[in-house]
């Protein structure tokens, strides 16, 4: 009884965590499903076919390719723009700091449907409604990822001790050398985290993309389309692979951290 009373919160917490994994379990299971009919979505039997022929459903792999291209470019663009802004915010003095904070906060607090529709209104007003597609999606994705990059990199920069940089300068390193040999390597994990966040935000976006995509189809748009007329099980293969890759990255990062702190502990 006493044990239960002490651990009740932890048990409830673990139960909630397990609940968040229920759909993941279903996605993995359904990736091995051998459906009897396209219209009935339930587990009918085990097969490896979906894994062996992931590109069989028409349009899936081209949508996936489009999504990967857009996400990579959006990650590159937003990480560069956001990192520069984060450096300015933490390391430099400028006029209008509070309006700058507001400008960075607002895109994270605006519902996607509003951002998407205003961007569409802009493209229509400027005569680009015929050119909606790859580039307009990319523009939108960079726009909504930038704020998340700024926030992530800023947190890393603000938590950083600048004694190391002072020491490098005292040892006659030029500002450029100090930046590339001290500052940048220290901030890099934050930049990497921001890039991963951008990639997954961009890859997963549906609402803003759908409004500004024209005839281009990204992976979420493909899923949206097939959801109305019968879902090919290969969609679950993609879902499983995404889950596996992200778990590998996160676990790898965590192991790397542990190894490093161990090495640091033995070194000192």
């Amino acid at each position: 009884m006493r044990w239960l009373r002490e651990h009740v919160v932890l048990i409830l917490g673990i139960a909630i965590l397990l609940y968040t994994f229920i759909p993941i379990f279903v996605v993995v299971l359904m990736s091995f499903n051998d459906p009897s009919s396209r219209l009935i979505y339930r587990f009918d039997g085990f097969t490896m076919d979906n894994w062996l022929h992931p590109c069989e459903p028409e349009g899936l792999c081209s949508a996936l390719g489009t999504s990967i291209q857009i996400s990579l470019l959006a990650t590159l663009g937003s990480t560069i723009l956001g990192t520069l802004m984060a450096f300015a915010l933490v390391r430099h003095d400028f006029l209008g700091r509070s309006s700058m904070n507001l400008l960075i906060f607002l895109p994270m607090a605006t519902p996607e449907i509003v951002m998407g529709s205003s961007l569409l209104a802009l493209f229509v007003a400027t005569g680009f409604s015929g050119q909606l597609g790859f580039w307009t999606i990319l523009i939108a994705h960079i726009m909504f990822c930038v704020s998340f990059v700024v926030v992530t990199v800023r947190a890393r920069l603000a938590g950083m001790d600048d004694n190391l940089e002072q020491a490098a300068m005292d040892l006659y390193a030029t500002p450029r050398e100090t930046f590339w040999r001290i500052t940048f390597p220290l901030v890099f994990p934050g930049i990497l985290g921001a890039a991963l966040l951008s990639f997954s935000l961009s890859f997963d976006d549906f609402i803003i993309t759908n409004l500004n995509a024209g005839n281009t189809t990204t992976f979420p748009m493909y899923v949206w389309g097939v959801a109305q007329r019968g879902i090919p099980m290969q969609v679950n293969v993609v879902g499983t692979v995404m889950f596996a890759i992200s778990v590998l990255i996160v676990v790898g990062g965590e192991l790397n951290n542990r190894r490093r702190s161990k090495a640091l502990a033995t070194a000192s």
Binding site: F206, V235, V238, G239, F243
Partner: peptide, 9 residues
């Protein structure tokens, strides 16, 4: 972790 799998899926 679960939220890295596509929202729609």
């Amino acid at each position: 972790a679960p939220f890295f799998t596509s929202f729609l899926v």
